[in-house]
Simulated scan of single mutants.
Amino acid sequence: MPGVTGGYLASVTDSSDATVEAVGKVTEALEFVERARGHLYSFHQLMGHADLLLGDACDALREAGSAAVAERLETDVVGRNVLFGRWTFQVVEEFDDSYWSVLREHERRVRDELSGGARHVHEARMKEHRRTHGRSGHEARP
């Protein structure tokens, strides 16, 4: 990664404000998609855990003498698709392959073409503007 005094700072200062803002919006959109993907993985794990618990509940219902209730739940709900033909792992994989990975590649290409590959140029400009130069805790880089 280039140092502050090298190519990185140049990309922070050389790009027009309009370009930095536009590239930043693409990156921000990706950040929201990353968050949505995290929620999708949470959904995947929560649904998987719920299905396992429901299976345990069916076993407990049988042991408690309610075999017909357990059978009904097990037959109709345990292992059921959450969407037509899909368990949650398939939803996650389809999202990753058809949307998330495509947007990640486009965001990287936008940065490469318009910001010399630098990430978070808007934030880097903001930091450079807001920090107190020469003050401990306000260093430009680690």
Rank of each mutant, 00 (worst) to 15 (best):
V20Q: 00
F43H: 05
H44I: 02
R37A: 08
V26S: 07
A29R: 06
Y41P: 01
E31C: 06
S42H: 08
L40C: 10
L40F: 01
G38V: 02
V23G: 08
V20I: 10
L40H: 01
S42G: 09
A36L: 15
L46A: 15
L30P: 07
Q45H: 14
G38L: 01
V26L: 09
V33H: 04
T19L: 00
A22K: 06
V26W: 04
Y41G: 01
E21G: 01
F32V: 10
A22T: 11
T19R: 00
D51I: 04
E21D: 09
E34Q: 14
F32G: 09
V23I: 08
E28R: 12
T27P: 01
S42P: 00
A50D: 07
V23F: 06
D51G: 03
G48P: 02
T27Y: 03
H44L: 06
V20Y: 03
H44D: 15
V33L: 15
D51T: 04
L53R: 15
K25N: 09
V23H: 07
Q45K: 02
R37N: 12
T19K: 00
G24R: 01
M47G: 11
L30T: 05
D51K: 01
E31R: 15
E31L: 10
E28I: 01
H44T: 04
Q45G: 06
R37G: 09
